[in-house]
């Protein structure tokens, strides 16, 4: 087969190319790097989608956010609405790769690469986001809890194209965070990551979401940890119990980045930090973005 490269000007161009067997590339920060590392060779037929203007931009409405598939991590981190109301997503995009990765890497690529270690997946899942998928036979919405079917696999047909991610607006008094364990400050992949989203009503937690990253074959929520938090007053013993439940709900593997036993132990630590940071934000306290680095020193400057 002859190697081919085309640049799509419109979504229709891109879908037509996908229909004839081409694979899409946007920032290339997963696809090309994966090929360099020997995970999978580059596709023989490539369609570049990075110049399709209609796939860019963040639209903020009363009902939530519409993220174009080509929105970069840099744009997400710089967006005031994301920082204020979808803070866990800002935490995640702020630590993807390096500033070079964040300038070109897109939210669409991050989600569709379906890595169980992707940073933005946990926050999007906890915010009930869904993927808008276009093809020659129409457009459909796939909730993110149905999108990832395994490491690197999705419920999307190769002839379909992700055009955007929709994120419903959270109820006021919601705080969120994403914290990951990392060995290096940039160009790092999560060893363990935890997302926490909590909504306060008076002094107690009315709703809670907890999701795990790099701790299972796909990013997924941990209902047992959420159940521990809901109805509690957010005190230290409740956070500790939810953190233990998070670790108990994980199924980590041994790999070059860490052993399963180490990951399970760290899941509890990172879950505790993520839940604490989300609670602090829900109470209106300031926690720096990204939460990962600020929580290493302990919230409020005290050592954890």
């Amino acid at each position: 087969m002859t190697r081919t490269f085309t640049t799509a000007a419109t979504v229709e161009d891109a879908i037509e190319a996908l229909g004839s067997g081409a694979r899409p590339i946007a920032g290339g920060t997963d696809l090309v790097v994966g090929a360099r590392q020997g995970k999978a060779s580059l596709p023989e037929a490539i369609v570049a989608i990075d110049r399709i203007a209609s796939l860019g931009g963040i639209v903020e409405g009363e009902d939530g956010l519409r993220l174009g598939a080509l929105v970069t991590h840099e744009e997400i981190v710089a967006n005031d609405v994301v920082r204020a109301r979808f803070t866990a997503l800002a935490d995640a995009s702020a630590i993807v790769g390096s500033h070079a990765t964040r300038a070109h890497g897109t939210i669409g690529g991050n989600v569709m690469n379906a890595s169980p270690a992707m940073d933005t997946g946990g926050p999007l899942l906890c915010f009930d986001a869904s993927a808008r998928i276009r093809s020659t036979w129409g457009e459909r919405e796939v909730p993110l809890d149905q999108l990832w079917t395994g490491p690197g696999t999705t419920a999307v047909d190769p002839r379909e194209l992700l055009v955007g991610i929709d994120v419903p607006a959270p109820i006021p008094a919601t705080g969120s965070s994403y914290v990951r364990l990392e060995y290096r400050r940039q160009m790092e992949i999560a060893v363990v990551g935890v997302t926490a989203v909590v909504r306060l009503d008076g002094g107690s937690i009315a709703d809670a979401r907890v999701a795990i990253t790099a701790l299972a074959p796909t990013i997924r929520r941990v209902p047992d940890a959420e159940a521990v938090l809901i109805g509690s007053d957010g005190a230290a013993d409740g956070i500790a119990a939810a953190a233990r439940a998070t670790a108990a709900g994980s199924s980590p593997i041994d790999d070059v980045r860490g052993s399963a036993a180490y990951r399970a132990a760290m899941a509890e630590v990172i879950a505790g930090r993520a839940i604490s940071a989300a609670l602090a934000r829900a109470r209106g306290e300031h926690v720096e973005i990204p939460a990962s680095s600020s929580t290493y020193a302990g919230l409020g400057g005290a050592r954890a």
């Binding site: 490269f5 640049t7 590339i25 290339g28 920060t29 090309v32 790097v33 360099r36 590392q37 490539i46 570049a48 990075d50 840099e74 790769g97 390096s98 500033h99 070079a100 990765t101 300038a103 070109h104 160009m187």
Partner: peptide
């Protein structure tokens, strides 16, 4: 490194940093 770990290949693309070892020239 040739896989985006080390940054020795970094260039600016339309003013933004890019790891050029992991970016297709045609793009």
């Amino acid at each position: 490194c040739d896989d985006s770990e080390c940054g020795a290949c970094m260039m600016l693309l339309d003013g933004k940093p890019v790891n050029s070892c992991s970016y297709l020239a045609l793009q």
